[in-house]
Design a protein around this nucleic acid. Structure first.
Length: 271
DNA sequence: ACGCCCTCCTGTTGGC
DNA sequence: TGCCAACAGGAGGGCG
């Protein structure tokens, strides 16, 4: 599912194809996404030039000469660069037609993705305003994690997946980071030790970095801008490995449902 | 303030 | 073999 590494891979993949290009048209085939795509969007975008492609948490920010697009891939979305005459497939939801003769095409079987336009600073948009610091920012350090875990009774995995506290980490990377930090997903945040906080900050960063390096994780739908899958699935230690031997110690990986989400951990390596 | 739960959606899977 | 229910999950919003 698109988490930070998949969004960053998409950002890097589309950037060279869209920077400096002018948007000829936005064609919306299915406006019923996570939030309805504004009917006024095509008129606003026609003729705008793309000047930057950024990312904040799991949001892609496409900077225009006036305003910006805020794109979310949801849980099954992907953005691809294609020739303008590429036949449409099932679940293609919108196309951004560029003056290069190519299109930026959004495909999303489950329609949890979204597309917004803002004429102000995207960071002030209601979707971005309350997000936690980026995992690679200096602000995301042991001190920060220590502070937000004190007095919190929620499970540390829920904390990692709460975008007001930590961004970019979804179910896959939360499980993987916790394995690397040797902390069980169900542990209460407030019971994290200082040493574990140090390891967890490091683990979040390294797992995201390593995933970005191989183009993210493809379970089913996700592909990068050129249509190629991510290869981090082969590097997973626990996710979707219930019952299989731990790659570190050989014990059977456990699976359990936590707040309706799958958690995986090694009963031997993780405390 | 905190934290749980619901909701959106559809392809896949597993059980009977 | 075929049908249907359960499941998966990002994340905002509602509620206790």
């Amino acid at each position: 599912m698109p988490e930070l590494p998949e969004v960053e891979t998409t950002r890097r993949g589309i950037e060279p194809h869209v920077i400096g290009r002018t948007i000829e048209a936005l064609e919306v085939y299915e406006p019923r996404l996570r939030w309805p795509v504004a009917r006024t969007l095509p008129a606003r975008l026609a003729g705008r030039r793309i000047v930057a492609v950024g990312r904040r948490a799991k949001y892609l920010l496409i900077g225009l000469d006036a305003g910006a697009l805020i794109v979310h891939l949801g849980m099954s979305g992907s953005l691809r660069i294609l020739a303008a005459d590429t036949p449409r497939l099932r679940h293609d939801q919108y196309d951004l037609r560029l003056d290069s003769g190519r299109i930026l095409r959004f495909n999303d079987p489950r329609r949890f993705g979204s597309l917004h336009y803002t004429d102000a600073d995207p960071g002030e948009h209601r979707l971005l305003r309350n997000l936690a610091p980026e995992p690679f920012d200096a602000a995301f350090d042991t001190e920060y994690l220590w502070r937000i875990t004190r007095a919190r009774r929620l499970a540390v995995k829920q904390l990692l997946m709460n975008s007001r506290l930590v961004v970019g980490v979804g179910n896959i990377y939360a499980n993987e980071a916790l394995f690397r930090a040797r902390v069980r997903p169900g542990r209460q945040a407030r019971h994290l030790t200082r040493a574990e906080a140090v390891r967890l900050v490091r683990a979040v960063r390294t797992v995201l970095t390593q995933a970005i390096r191989v183009g993210g994780t493809t379970l089913r739908d996700y592909v990068g801008a050129d249509g190629s899958p991510g290869y981090f699935r082969q590097k997973l230690y626990v996710y979707e490995r219930g019952g299989q031997p731990c790659r570190r110690c050989g014990a059977a990986i456990r699976h359990r449902t936590q707040q309706g989400r799958s958690s995986y951990y090694c009963p031997c390596c993780q405390r």
